[in-house]
């Protein structure tokens, strides 16, 4: 009797996995082979490097520097961010130009950064933001993860 009940459960299990197989195969075929994008995907996973996960608006990712309209960084090198940084991963160097103070070097050691966002919170000039959506940084050595925010001006367009 127990064996018979077990057998029915076995059949039930086969029906569940079989349903997944048939339904997902159907959806994969329509979605990828016939390019019917309105059909739900047959998978819950993403094809990662091509498909990116949609991040929340508040998600903290790699830092970026905000720039003024004349192209100079907003950072005035007040040193509040290296002070509050719990991971000690920010390195700022300043220079005085015609009575104004600018950062000339603003490095983040991404191998140390814990993405707490304190530097963003503490900045009086709104010079750093963590909204690039970039999470996959790769380097062959530790120095490769030293990231200078001032050298990557191509992200200026992201100013919102």
């Amino acid at each position: 009797m127990k064996g018979l009940l077990l057998f029915f459960e076995v059949v039930k299990g086969l029906l569940i996995t079989g349903r997944h197989l048939v339904v997902n195969l159907f959806r994969h075929t329509l979605h990828y082979l016939f390019r019917l994008k309105w059909v739900r995907k047959g998978s819950v996973t993403l094809l990662y490097p091509e498909e990116r996960p949609s991040l929340s608006q508040r998600h903290r990712s790699r830092h970026r520097m905000m720039f003024r309209e004349d192209g100079k960084p907003r950072c005035v090198a007040c040193m509040l961010c290296p002070t509050i940084c719990p991971s000690d991963c920010l390195f700022v160097e300043a220079e005085d130009v015609e009575g104004d103070r600018y950062a000339v070097r603003f490095q983040v050691d991404l191998s140390l950064c814990c993405f707490c966002g304190f530097c963003v919170e503490v900045c009086p000039e709104d010079a750093i933001r963590m909204d690039t959506g970039k999470l996959d940084f790769v380097a062959l050595n530790r120095e490769g993860l030293l990231f200078d925010l001032l050298e990557n001006k191509e992200e200026k367009g992201l100013n919102r």
């Binding site: 997944h20 197989l21 997902n24 195969l25 994969h28 047959g42 998978s43 819950v44 996973t45 094809l47």
Partner: peptide, 13 residues
């Protein structure tokens, strides 16, 4: 592939 499709994945591609 079949194990992937059963488990709502993509499988080797």
């Amino acid at each position: 592939k079949e194990s992937a499709v059963i488990q709502d994945r993509h499988g080797a591609n």
